[in-house]
């Protein structure tokens, strides 16, 4: 589904990303972990064509994301607040996303129904602008909007951050259901090793822009990751 080859990104003299070869298959749930500055967000931004890499390319379904834009149709993403339009109300923002993806009013209604639990009555009908909502609620809006067009590829950067415990569990269940019932390919980064090992089948550890571990999740994975992060330095 996604093929990264020879990808590097250099800021000044510092190489922040260096991935010679990485393949993410269809239906895979791909977890990305690493300490701050390891290059997780940079990698996601390259996949979403938000950063021009110094060398290499990201192919999505065989097409270079920087050259053809059709990946946007089947890719949903939420990295940070910059993905929200903060002077809209949540409803207006969802409407905007629905319009951009050409979804009908019925689709939107179905979306509201599907995410009713996830929103927990904190998002809709509040007459507030997104910028006046709490960080956790903004996060909910961003994640749900990324899922609205039923994407084949989902990219989320630290989705569990600033969510309350209930919503964290709901999000985990949501992602697991998606994995089981659809053919979605998920790319998720997180600092929470428990969450990520629970949700993802495959976990890649980044360090200073390089892949240092590429694991298939099993009962030992959490232990390996904890060992890796505790002995380091």
């Amino acid at each position: 589904m996604i093929q990264i080859s020879n990808l590097t990104k250099v800021y000044g003299t510092q190489t922040v990303l260096d991935i010679p070869d990485l393949k993410i298959n269809k239906c895979e749930s791909f977890g990305l972990v690493g300490n701050n500055g390891a290059g997780k967000t940079t990698m996601f931004r390259c996949i979403l064509d938000l950063i021009r890499p110094n060398t290499g390319a990201v192919l999505s379904r065989g097409n270079d994301v920087a050259k053809k834009e059709n990946w946007k149709i089947y890719t949903g993403s939420y990295l940070d607040d910059g993905f929200l339009i903060d002077f809209l109300t949540p409803e207006e923002y969802f409407q905007f996303v629905a319009d951009v993806y050409g979804l009908s009013d019925g689709d939107l209604k179905a979306f509201y129904h599907d995410f009713e639990d996830f929103f927990n009555n904190e998002i809709l009908g509040k007459k507030k602008l997104i910028r006046d909502l709490s960080a956790g609620n903004r996060q909910k809006i961003g994640i749900s909007a990324a899922l609205m067009p039923k994407p084949e590829i989902l990219v989320l950067d630290e989705p569990f951050n600033s969510l309350d415990p209930t919503t964290q569990i709901r999000l985990k269940n949501l992602l697991k259901t998606l994995k089981k019932e659809t053919e979605i390919t998920m790319l998720i980064s997180s600092h929470d090793l428990n969450h990520i090992t629970e949700v993802c089948d495959r976990i890649v550890v980044l360090h200073e822009g390089k892949i240092v571990h590429d694991l298939v999740t099993n009962q030992d994975t959490l232990k390996i990751l904890e060992d890796y992060f505790s002995v380091e330095k």
């Binding site: 979403l48 064509d49 938000l50 910059g82 993905f83 929200l84 339009i85 951009v100 993806y101």
Partner: peptide, 12 residues
């Protein structure tokens, strides 16, 4: 500028 990423990643 505050939501430029949103526009770039949407099917626009």
């Amino acid at each position: 500028s505050s939501f430029f990423d949103a526009l770039l990643t949407k099917n626009l």
